[in-house]
Design a protein around this nucleic acid. Structure first.
Length: 301
DNA sequence: GCGCCATGTATAG
DNA sequence: TATACCTGGCGCA
């Protein structure tokens, strides 16, 4: 079957290639709430892997959606919650207003169909998620409880993260990615926030000063909130934008303007040194050897 | 058309 | 530390 020609009044917000960090999940939760909450929703699993659970939820009112770190929760009436984790490649494409709901394309694990705020049909398709399970409040709370503070949540207590970091010999670049230390930060925000604070990713957590941690936290609160608003990760300051520097804008699949993430071998936007990369905690890490020169040892530069 | 890589995490050894 | 899992985009034949 061919993909349906797509001509809604509003262009569909494509989250399918999201490769999500916390901002993506917060944005999805807000959008799904805005589109579906308060009314009964048709729930199905065209692909079949969530069919039994979908049948139980079909026609039930969606009370709302919430996000914690990189986890998404769809809260249906009767304390039934769908716990979703997109993993590396999952996506949840929300179409707030279409003239007609198309036949599913590809492996759609979960489909929501309802009436959007405009009165037109609305639907959302979940694909490629590593986690999609029907749980109760207890299981949801357990998931949230094992997460560190989330910079996107107003109820977050950054001191919990600081207590872990200040005691740890592990590299800060690893600690920032540990969802039990801090929730929602992924590989892009890790690389970028460390650059912005001139910290080498291998620097042990316990060598950070409290003021440095506080500055990082405050920065993440702002950067990630921007990410929610804009729908992509932009971290360069005004003086380093393509327009300000007269350089071509970045073109790749995540689209945001960044200092070091996936810029290995290219000149640092601040000092011109070539951006370096190495694997840290199983993921590619990027840093500027000059701006983030924390260790004097040449071996680590 | 194929293989690889990717904003993530769980599990096995 | 290695690998498995899931999908889409890209570079390269």
């Amino acid at each position: 079957m061919r993909a349906p020609v797509c001509c809604p009044r509003f262009p569909p917000l494509r989250n399918a290639a999201a490769m999500p960090e916390g901002h993506t999940l917060r944005r999805l939760a807000d959008e799904i709430s805005g589109v579906f909450a308060g009314s009964p929703v048709r729930v199905s699993s065209p692909q079949g892997r969530f069919a039994a659970e979908a049948a139980q939820l079909d026609g039930v009112v969606l009370d709302g959606a919430d996000a914690a770190g990189k986890h998404l929760f769809l809260e249906f009436s009767g304390e039934r919650i769908v716990h979703i984790h997109l993993g590396l490649i999952g996506g949840f494409a929300v179409h707030p207003s279409v003239s007609e709901v198309p036949a599913p394309v590809g492996a759609v694990r979960l489909r929501l169909v309802g009436q959007g705020p405009t009165g037109d049909p609305a639907y959302a398709d979940l694909r490629g998620a590593t986690q999609c399970e029907l749980v109760g409040p207890g299981a949801r709370d357990a998931v949230v409880a094992r997460l560190g503070p989330d910079p996107l949540r107003p109820d977050a207590d950054p001191d919990r993260a600081w207590q872990r970091i200040a005691r740890s010999h592990r590299p800060i670049g690893e600690l920032l990615m540990d969802q039990a230390v801090m929730a929602g930060v992924g590989n892009v925000y890790r690389a970028e926030v460390l650059f912005r604070h001139r910290l080498h990713p291998l620097r042990p957590g316990r060598t950070l000063r409290r003021s440095q941690f506080s500055a990082i936290w405050a920065d993440l609160v702002e950067l990630m909130a921007d990410g929610v608003r804009v729908g992509r990760i932009d971290t360069v300051r005004p003086e380093h934008t393509p327009e300000a520097m007269g350089r071509p804008p970045r073109v790749d699949d995540h689209g945001g303007e960044v200092y070091v993430y996936r810029r290995a071998g290219q000149p640092c936007l601040v000092c011109g040194s070539l951006v370096r990369t190495d694997v840290l905690a199983g993921r590619n890490s990027f840093w500027c050897p000059q701006c983030q020169r924390v260790f004097r040892s040449r071996a680590l530069q």
